[in-house]
């Protein structure tokens, strides 16, 4: 909390007068009990940080060794949530972005300073529309907005076929709250180009092919895991593009409570996109009995406004972890490719 208090001093933007920020830097609209939900005791938190520091080593020097030796311990600890003070560093280690950075010295600077992008105006148009309630991004042309612009512009030059697509800003914005511009850029590259997991650039390529595939696969999963609800959805003509596009395009960073989004990202970067499907299913499962009684319009509303208790990471995530999706995802992918007569590209 203390970390961000000073920022208010130089913030002349249209901030509501009695505004306060939460521990992540978002302007509080109304007094919520989110800090109570953060309920980790101080000493417990400190113990966790010590464990993590040992696991990582100085500047991440022991990380690879530890992961190789005890992958299950790492997985379990990440699923419990990476300590906030180490999050930025750990994200870079588990995403493979740190290696990319080291292998490409000077490249980011080159992209930002010397290249021009056809997407510059599109990026500028959206800068103030990305996390508009976060202090870091609120100030017009302030450091937050400038970094966001630079990262997005650099990526649009780095991959001109993708360029800039709405939604990328939320990924970049989330990363920038935990690391420098250059680090955020390489993490974006690692994700979209597939440094560790399958590449996700298809989320943003022309035709949004990967979005379409994920939505198809998600619908498949709903019918398999929640057959009654799946049937209800099709009777009410609800399809995942109406509620889940944002989940995939921004990996839950667009409209979900920040503490939940961060916990999802911890797992997402280590285990891959599967967690997005799992969390989506867990949300539907948690609200199943309510959803099944709603008709079209109320459904759409409910699917965009989950109750607060459903979005408590300590309730939702254990539920998500318990859902198995791998087999079904594999099958539905093959089916999707058959239907769309697409050549297999990625693993």
């Amino acid at each position: 909390m203390d970390r961000s208090r000073g920022i208010n001093d130089y913030e002349p933007g249209p901030v509501p007068s009695e505004s306060r920020v939460d521990r992540y830097g978002f302007i509080k609209q109304n007094v919520s009990n989110s800090s109570a939900a953060e309920g980790l005791g101080k000493s417990r938190e400190a113990r966790r940080v010590r464990k993590w520091r040992k696991m990582i080593g100085v500047g991440g020097s022991d990380w690879k060794h530890y992961v190789r030796r005890k992958p299950h311990v790492v997985k379990r600890r990440i699923r419990k949530g990476i300590p906030d003070c180490l999050r930025g560093l750990v994200w870079q280690l588990i995403s493979g972005s740190r290696d990319l950075l080291l292998m490409n010295p000077g490249v980011y600077e080159q992209l930002v300073i010397y290249e021009t992008s056809a997407s510059e105006l599109d990026i500028i148009r959206d800068i103030s529309r990305t996390f508009p309630t976060h202090v870091f991004f609120q100030q017009r042309h302030g450091p937050g907005q400038r970094s966001l612009y630079n990262v997005l512009k650099a990526y649009s030059v780095f991959d001109r076929a993708v360029g800039y697509v709405q939604g990328m800003g939320f990924l970049a914005g989330l990363l920038l709250l935990y690391m420098s511009e250059e680090d955020a850029f390489w993490l974006l590259v690692a994700l979209l180009k597939g440094a560790v997991h399958a590449p996700m650039e298809g989320l943003y390529q022309v035709g949004l092919p990967l979005v379409q595939q994920y939505l198809f696969q998600f619908e498949h999963l709903v019918r398999e895991h929640l057959p009654k609800l799946g049937e209800h959805f099709s009777r009410e003509m609800i399809n995942p593009s109406m509620y889940a596009s944002q989940w995939f395009i921004t990996v839950f960073s667009y409209s979900f409570p920040f503490p939940l989004a961060l916990r999802i990202w911890d797992v997402f970067l280590f285990e891959g996109v599967k967690i997005v499907f799992k969390v989506g299913l867990a949300l539907l499962k948690y609200c199943h009995d309510d959803l099944i009684n709603l008709s079209f319009e109320k459904l759409i509303h409910a699917l965009r406004n989950f109750p607060e208790d459903a979005m408590n990471p300590d309730i939702l995530l254990p539920m998500a972890y318990s859902i198995k999706v791998s087999r079904s995802l594999g099958e539905s992918k093959i089916e999707y490719e058959k239907q769309n007569r697409k050549p297999k590209i990625e693993a």
Binding site: G169, Q246, I249
Partner: peptide, 14 residues
């Protein structure tokens, strides 16, 4: 809302 986010996908209201 002056501070609105860009729309991702589709939104709906009646």
């Amino acid at each position: 809302c002056l501070e609105s986010k860009s729309t991702i996908g589709v939104e709906f209201a009646t």
